[in-house]
């Protein structure tokens, strides 16, 4: 039961993008087309779950064991950077077209605050390993949901007549705000 609470909370109530403001750069940058949004979500999900597991183990067995908690930021970000390298190499071999489509956004997953953010939050919330996996997976789904929904909205935004000053980022942000407002309706469920 606890897992259902974690899942619903991470995807809807405390959506990683719309409520916690993590992963905004890719959210604004990759969400122009639904197809790239889906591809990005896949990559992020993979990195997020793996990164959370590895950082969790590092925290418990190295940082906590030796009392060097202050090394958290450095060690976590190195883990994430390495994982992203790994994903890049894998994608190049397994699916070159997707690798091309994601282009420069792949290495940018390293600086996706959502990944580091979820890794840190997992430690802060004191989850065990299984809860950590569920939390990171659900957060990734929440990220994907926000991204894909937003991409759909943006594809429409591009076809609409807007005042010049609002074109691009401003309109996108206001629409994101409305989407965030909609998601606020989920609060109180858990």
């Amino acid at each position: 039961m606890e897992f259902i609470v974690i899942i619903i909370s991470a995807i809807f109530v405390n959506n990683v993008v719309l409520a916690q403001f993590l992963g905004i750069c890719p959210f604004l940058g990759v969400s122009k087309k639904v197809s790239t949004a889906v591809g990005m979500t896949g990559a992020v999900t993979f990195v997020m779950i793996l990164a959370t597991i590895v950082t969790y183990l590092i925290q418990k067995y190295i940082l906590d064991a030796f009392g060097i908690g202050f090394m958290q930021t450095i060690s976590f970000i190195l883990v994430i950077a390495s994982l992203v390298q790994l994903v890049e190499i894998m994608l190049k071999k397994v699916s070159p077209p997707l690798y091309q489509a994601l282009g420069v956004f792949l290495p940018l997953i390293t600086t996706n605050c959502a990944i580091l953010g979820v890794a840190i939050m997992t430690i802060q919330k004191d989850y065990n390993l299984l809860e950590a996996v569920v939390f990171s997976g659900a957060s990734a789904i929440g990220f994907g949901l926000a991204l894909v929904l937003f991409a759909g909205l943006r594809e429409h935004l591009d076809l609409v007549d807007l005042p010049k000053g609002m074109k691009g980022a401003p309109a996108a942000l206001v629409v994101a705000g409305l989407l965030a407002m909609a998601f606020m309706g989920f609060s109180g469920i858990v």
Binding site: G165, M166, A169, L173, V174, A180, M184
Partner: peptide, 25 residues
């Protein structure tokens, strides 16, 4: 109240950027 909450951040920033764009032009 909405402005100190999540949606308000997006909306405020959106309009602020639009405003600054206008000033720069």
């Amino acid at each position: 109240l909405i402005f100190v909450l999540a949606p308000g951040a997006f909306i405020a920033l959106g309009y602020l950027i639009a405003f600054i764009n206008k000033l720069r032009k």
